[in-house]
Design a binder for these strands. Sequence first.
DNA 1: ATGGTCGTTTGACGA
Length: 260
Amino acid sequence: MRIVTWNVNSLNARLGRVERWLQTFEPDVLCLQETKLADDAFPALTFEALGYETFHHGQGQWNGVAILSRVGIENPIGGFGDGGNPDPDARIAWATCGGVRVASCYVPNGRSLDHEHYQYKLRWLDRLAADLDGQCTPADDVVVCGDFNIAPDDRDVYDPAKFATETHASAAEREKIQTLLDWGLVDVFREHHDDGGLYSWWDYRGGNFHKKLGMRIDLLLTTRSVADRVAVTLVDRNERKGPKDDPPSDHAPVLIDGTR
DNA sequence: ATGGTCGTTTGACGA
């Protein structure tokens, strides 16, 4: 299975790129974040023509997540599947694809450590962990992926000192990732690459991409059974490049691939 | 080490 996560920062703005990327890489499952579309504006037919079933959970203007699959989509859920109050933001979609329970997540940014949105982010991650535990066991084939807006450790940021007072690298956020790992998920890209400087997001401003100033915040967290079958993990940095008339997302796709 | 950039939109705001 080849499974990919990609924050596209508007699917309208990125549709041509996504179509070309699907044809080049032929993933079995593609999880998208920040589609910024309402459900009735999601281009399902475009993806169907390329051989993909889709499930989109959107709200318009902001947020929006999707799962594209050419190995089936079963039991889709838009939002948390815990039966609690609906999240007003469209930030998570679940579906079972080829026997793997998949979540496409767009974790709240947090904005700043003293902002209410940061508390929302921490609570959102608690709810994700509970939702995961309610739907799956660590013995299942599970992939929880997406834009976590968290760099799991200091190798994943270009300047740890700078981020000591900012979101994305705080101890509280990293503890939420650790909770998911303790439950039984594996940061499978990190399992394959020890080096720092391997990022998935670069700020549009200041030429940060070309200066190699980024963060690894797009993660594929898988159960052990999935991680043991993964042979290749990569970030498609080339997709972060491109001309002004066909600009890239500020995130690159992150891919895992393995046997079966 | 910061922002000077994007995308939503047509004035800011979010990332």
